[in-house]
Write a protein that binds this DNA or RNA. Structure first.
Length: 268
DNA sequence: CACGAGACCTGTTCGC
DNA sequence: TGCGAACAGGTCTCGT
């Protein structure tokens, strides 16, 4: 579920409930959820540290502790909950931190794709990420230049976290639609004006997602409502809100891809 | 370098 | 109603 706006929403919600609390004990329910280090070292090292700050980098949650960084990626179905008061174990809980003041941080993840790291240096995990799309290094000029240097299809390139970090399947489809660019267009054929449109669209769509507290779909509900404002994502067979044409659904890089065949024309 | 397929997982929804 | 197939917010690895 979580792309940049959803992870940002989670970080904002967790911050007031967790910052300042101490970690009493870690409990790992599904072994593979822990990416680094070993379970024994993890449990030993994390105990007694205090939660200093919670932030986001791309789709990662970064929890700064007294001496280490706890980094979490929710992948497809992960969710993080701060439970104040009695904690009752639930079916898909994979990892639990018992905190001071009767608080529990629960990592709930039905599909078990999510991962957790405990590291001294966050770059060990975050070092290969591209620029933050809502950050100052992401400019129209940077985007144009870097699109020229590749010859990839736009959609898979924008999903490549080493190229730009934080965009996922929903927001890429929405961004390309807003910029009126076809998902299969070659990146090196994007004009300077089109790159500027794409730059603007990516930021607008992500900002709207954050403003609406992210998108909540299916059984993973977190209170966001961006799902009620999708223009193309998940709307194959329905009409384009801009021109009324029927939205098409294709597969690109094994991902469902939604676009308007009239607004987003593939020139060749 | 670019791309497709397969893995990793469980749950829901759809078609017959 | 039952049952298999398709599909789901992500990313990694391997072969071509």
């Amino acid at each position: 579920m979580p792309e940049l706006p959803e992870v940002e929403t989670i970080a904002r919600n967790l911050r007031p409930a967790l910052v300042g609390k101490a970690i009493l004990e870690a409990d790992l329910c599904w072994k593979r959820t822990l990416a680094k280090p070993s379970a024994a070292k993890f449990k030993r090292d994390i105990r007694g540290q205090e939660i200093r700050e919670i932030s986001r980098r791309a789709k990662f949650l970064v929890i700064q502790l007294s001496t280490d960084f706890l980094i979490i990626h929710l992948r497809m179905s992960g969710d993080l909950l701060a439970i104040i008061g009695g904690y009752a174990p639930a079916k898909h809980d994979r990892f639990i931190l018992k905190l001071s003041e009767d608080t529990t941080l629960v990592f709930h993840d039905p599909r078990k794709f999510g991962r957790v790291w405990l590291v001294k240096n966050p770059d060990e995990v975050l070092g290969n990420l591209g620029p933050e799309p809502l950050g100052s290094d992401f400019s129209a000029g940077w985007l144009y230049e870097n699109l020229q240097r590749r010859k990839r299809q736009l959609k898979p390139l924008l999903l490549d976290q080493a190229f730009i970090a934080g965009i996922g399947n929903i927001y890429v489809d929405e961004s390309l639609h807003m910029a009126k660019l076809h998902p299969l267009m070659r990146s090196n054929r994007v004009s300077e004006a089109q790159a500027e449109d794409l730059w603007r669209a990516v930021q607008a769509v992500l900002e709207e997602g954050i403003r609406r507290n992210g998108a909540s779909i299916d059984w993973v509900y977190r209170g966001g409502d961006f799902q009620n404002h999708f223009r193309v994502y998940g709307r194959g067979g329905k009409t384009c809100p801009v021109c009324g044409t029927i939205i098409d659904r294709i597969t690109v890089g094994q991902r469902g891809t939604h676009f308007c065949p009239a607004c987003q024309v593939l020139e060749r």
